[in-house]
Design a protein around this nucleic acid. Structure first.
Ligand SMILES: [Zn+2]
Ligand SMILES: [Zn+2]
Ligand SMILES: [Zn+2]
Ligand SMILES: [Zn+2]
Lengths: 130, 130
DNA sequence: AAAAATAACGCAACAATGTTGCGATTAAAA
DNA sequence: TTTTAATCGCAACATTGTTGCGTTATTTTT
């Protein structure tokens, strides 16, 4: 079995997540790390953190990919079924941990995973405009 | 005002959509077109068809982008608020025109658009496996 | 029908994002 | 301390999408 290791690069990436309230893209992480490690290493660390259920991957409407901390590691079954909000103004992505859509599916489909993304204006941008 | 023109390439792309029950990626369209036109032209045609509300763009969980015919052009307000299903086995994307999620949002958010994608096994793959 | 206007095209070049192979490091176990 | 293998850096490559520009072709005007 493969064991996972704690490296300086991985610790640095984790710290970036700890200090962020919103989801982060690979590029945003790279900028904050400031040459702590190679570009490729960040990709590999992100893959590992996803596999370890420490962060989750968010694919956005505009094609960008971001990652966010998992705030539910205590749950027995680790499922990412919450919604995400994408602000059209500041482009920040936030987890809406408590928003879970209800829906009715046609028969003969087996649903394993759902992705629910809403876009519009976040509270910050909603208050600070005309 | 810019007027839109009917070209052989655009007609060919439209025909590909007419013959498809599922959503199509740029690459899939390109293969079916078989050098009718350049790669870039397909991108530009897809952009135009989206602007004309003839097709809609679907961003998938795995980062792929597909396009599908709009089957609701008769509606007065043209909104794409239906769900999409992504099969983990055959990777086909289908529009679930009648699946519309209900949800409760926290205050102070203004929602303009939603994206609801479900993944799992489609009816075809569900029936044809062990 | 011919001429004029411009939407659409082909091509080449570029950009962003992510992947792979491989030899060198280094964290963790023995 | 030595050994093992997970992780890293680097170079090279792949995919997807964009842009500029001179050319082609559809549509409108004359
Ligand atoms: Zn905002
Ligand atoms: Zn989340
Ligand atoms: Zn299927
Ligand atoms: Zn659809």
């Amino acid at each position: 079995m493969k064991t996972t290791r704690n490296t300086t690069a991985k610790t640095a990436v984790l710290e970036v997540f700890e200090n962020s309230k919103t989801a982060l893209s690979h590029t945003e992480i790279q900028k904050q790390l400031n040459d702590v490690c190679d570009r490729v290493t960040i990709y590999r660390i992100l893959d590992r953190l996803v596999n370890e259920d420490i962060i989750h991957k968010i694919s956005n409407l505009d094609g960008t990919v971001k990652y966010a901390k998992c705030n539910h590691s205590h749950q027995r079954v680790h499922i990412h079924n919450h919604a995400h909000f994408s602000c059209e103004n500041c482009h920040e992505i936030t987890c809406l941990e408590n928003v879970k859509p209800s829906y009715i599916m046609p028969h003969n489909y087996k649903v394993n995973e759902i992705n629910f993304t809403l876009s519009g204006l976040c509270p910050k941008c909603l208050n600070s405009n005309i």
